[in-house]
């Protein structure tokens, strides 16, 4: 009897323990080790004393500020555009019509495709010698590759944005679509009989219903883009580049003295991300309630 009781008491902790242990040890351990290095604890090269010098160096560096702004801009724009486009498509795809199932399948194709593959495809499509540029020549719009607008290795980062859009629109889209399908048309019908026009039905009935889904997927997307390394490295200009690229560059520099700086950059990256996400969530919660 007592053993049964004890088992019952330990059941939940036992179920949680393995997952928690791995996440806490790996993620938490990594965080602590990283933060430690960023404040000067790096015994491998003989650093032991606490210092905030690395943070000061970085925060006063104009290149860092520029990178931070670029990283933020890419993440913000990708998230915003993806959400808007995803909602628009979801509004169409939630209805059953001829071919809607096939269209929904097509719409989901980007979800499993790795970002690197997407980057390859985008380069082959929109670079100055890409398929679109060739099409422009064929149509007589341009005559040489140089006439075609620069979208890869450009400062605005158009190819980077396109890559993220292509990947994230369906991701946000299927979550919103799933919510819309489970909600059904009845709330809108009630609203309509109560006098709500098309826009009012979207603004006051649908949007509050799908907002939680949009928000949580947006946060995932924002966090992903904010911390992504390979896409800006492959498709962006060398300078200014995003914070993750900057951090890894410093980290992999043969000069080990740059490592604490890399750590400081990534800690700042994490802090900024958390702050923005908290602010965003607050703001959106406020927006949804009014």
């Amino acid at each position: 009897m007592n053993r049964l009781k004890l088992f019952e008491k330990l059941r939940v902790p036992m179920m949680l323990f393995p997952a928690l242990a791995i996440v806490v040890l790996l993620f938490g351990g990594g965080m602590i080790s990283g933060i430690g290095q960023s404040v000067g604890y790096f015994p491998v090269i003989g650093l032991q004393d606490f210092t905030l010098d690395y943070y000061r160096d970085i925060l006063t560096d104009s290149g860092f500020i520029e990178s931070l702004w670029l990283t933020f801009r890419l993440a913000f724009l990708s998230t915003l555009m993806s959400s808007v486009i995803a909602v628009l498509f979801a509004l169409v795809l939630r209805h059953a019509f001829r071919g809607s199932q096939f269209l929904t399948f097509l719409y989901q194709i980007p979800i499993p495709i790795p970002h690197l593959v997407v980057a390859t495809g985008i380069v082959l499509l929109v670079s100055q010698s890409g398929l679109l540029s060739r099409g422009a020549v064929t149509l007589g719009l341009t005559s040489t590759p140089r006439d075609f607008p620069v979208m890869v290795f450009d400062r605005p980062g158009i190819a980077i944005q396109l890559t993220y859009l292509w990947k994230e629109v369906p991701f946000i889209g299927i979550v919103v679509l799933a919510v819309l399908k489970s909600v059904g048309p009845q709330y809108e019908e009630i609203a309509q009989t109560l006098g709500a026009n098309r826009w009012q039905r979207f603004r006051f009935v649908l949007l509050p219903l799908i907002m939680p889904g949009i928000l949580s997927t947006s946060i995932i997307v924002f966090a992903f883009v904010f911390a992504n390394y390979e896409i800006p490295l492959l498709l962006g200009v060398r300078y200014p580049t995003t914070l993750p690229v900057m951090a890894f560059r410093n980290y992999q520099d043969p000069d080990l003295a740059l490592r604490p700086q890399a750590m400081a950059i990534s800690v700042i990256l994490a802090i900024v991300a958390i702050l923005l996400l908290v602010a965003y969530k607050r703001l959106a919660k406020y927006a949804a309630e009014t």
Partner: peptide
Amino acid sequence: IIVPGIVSTLGIHQL
């Protein structure tokens, strides 16, 4: 999921 994994990854490398 929401905190950029870059800090932990770089930290884990040392560990």
